[in-house]
Design a protein around this nucleic acid. Structure first.
Lengths: 190, 190
DNA sequence: TTGTAATTTCAGTAACTACTGAAATAACTG
DNA sequence: CAGTTATTTCAGTAGTTACTGAAATTACAA
C-alpha cells in the first residue's frame, strides 16, 4: 500500500469496518480511497494505491456499482473507466439507506407478509403469528416514515435532524392550537 | 429441525438474513425461535428445535447476550437457564439501534476525529481531511439526533414516526408564528 | 482484418468463519 | 465429600468467502 499516512489510516479503517458493514475489506478500502481522492481514479491506480490484484479491483468495483455507491467517469481521449463517489455526503447517505433497506429490510417484510397470510394450525402457530404481526407492524411504521422522509430536500432533512426530539414539544403546542381552533368552531367534539 | 411450518419459515429466513445483518445463521435462527416462542426456552430445547450441536447453541446464546438481545430467566426448582426476547418490539428496536451504533458507527467516528486532529502534510492530505470532515459532520448530526430521539417514550416516538415529513409543514407554520411574535416585540430583526 | 489496451471471468487456493464432539469446568445435591 | 447435571471451552474440521493469476472477452485503432 502506497498512500499518504492520513489517507492510509482512513482506508485501513474502512477495510476493517467492511466486515461489520456487510461488505468486504477490499470493497471498503476502495470506497474509502475513492471518497477522499480529489480526482476520479482508474482501476490501475487503485491497484497501485492498495497493492491488490487487478481482478480483485475489478470485482470490487462491480460490487460498489451494484450498491450504486460509485460514479463512472470518462476523460476525453482515454477509454479507461474512472471512478468517484458523489461529492454530496447527504446523497451518499440516501443511497446507503436505500440499498440497505432493499437488502436487509424488504426481504423480511415480504416473508412476514407471506407467513401472516397463512392459517395457523395450532396454538403455537397462532402465538407465533401474533409476534410476527407485531414485528411486521413496527417495520412497516419505520419504512413508511423512511419513505416519507427520504423525499425531503437536504436542508429540510437537516432541519428535522437538528430539531430532533424538540419536535414533540412543538407537537404539544400544535395540539393545543388545533383543539382550541376546533373547540371554537365545533364546541361539541372536545 | 423440528418446528411448526410457520415458525420454521420464520426461523429459516432469519438464519438466511443473518449474514446480511452481520450475525451468523445460527444466531439468527435462535433469535427468531426465541422471539416467537410463547415461553422461555433452555439450551436443550433449542438444540432439539433447530437440530444443531449443544456447543453451538452455547456460543450463539453468548453472542446474543453480548448484543443484549436476549433475557435470561429462571424457573423455580430448575437450575437450567431459560432464554427469551423482550416482549416489546420497540424495546428490541432500541437495543438493536444502540448496539449497531456502538459497533458500526462509533469506531468510525473516533477514527475520523483522530485523523482530523493531525496536521496535513500535503495537498492530497488536506483534501482528504476536508472530505473526512464532511463525513464526520454528517455522522455527528445523525448521532446527535439519535441520542435525542432515543430518550423519547415509545408513544411519543410513534407519534413522531407517524408524522414523518409532515413535521416540516408544521415547522413552516411555527417559523411564521415565531417571526411574527419576534417582529412585534423586536421589529428590527426580521 | 490484426494488434493492442482495458476489462472481466473463473478455476484454484488462501484465509477466515462456523460448527462439532470431547473434555473441562462450574453449580448444585445428597 | 462424591456424584450428577448444566454449561463452557477449545482443538480440529467443515464450510464459506476473498483473492489471485491466467485465460478469455470486449472495445477500439491501424
Amino acid at each position: 500500500m502506497n498512500l499518504p499516512p492520513l489517507v492510509q489510516s482512513f482506508v485501513l479503517h474502512f477495510g476493517e469496518m467492511g466486515s461489520r458493514w456487510g461488505i468486504n475489506r477490499t470493497v471498503g478500502q476502495i470506497y474509502a480511497l475513492l471518497y477522499v481522492s480529489p480526482e476520479p481514479l482508474n482501476a490501475d491506480q487503485i491497484v497501485d494505491s492498495l497493492g491488490i490484484s487487478r481482478s480483485n479491483v475489478s470485482m470490487s468495483l462491480r460490487e460498489l456499482q451494484a450498491w450504486n455507491l460509485v460514479l463512472l467517469k470518462h476523460l476525453p481521449d482515454d477509454r479507461r473507466d474512472f471512478f468517484t463517489t458523489p461529492d454530496d455526503v447527504w446523497q451518499i447517505l440516501r443511497t446507503l439507506a436505500e440499498e440497505r433497506k432493499k437488502r436487509e429490510v424488504d426481504p423480511t417484510l415480504s416473508v412476514l407478509r407471506e407467513i401472516l397470510m397463512q392459517q395457523p394450525a395450532s396454538d403455537a402457530e397462532r402465538h407465533a403469528q401474533e409476534r410476527m404481526a407485531e414485528m411486521h407492524g413496527l417495520i412497516e411504521r419505520l419504512t413508511t416514515w423512511y419513505d416519507d422522509v427520504k423525499k425531503l430536500e437536504t436542508d429540510r432533512l437537516a432541519t428535522l435532524l437538528t430539531l430532533g426530539a424538540k419536535v414533540t414539544r412543538l407537537l404539544e403546542a400544535k395540539d393545543k392550537i388545533v383543539s382550541l381552533g376546533r373547540s371554537k368552531r365545533n364546541p361539541d367534539r372536545a
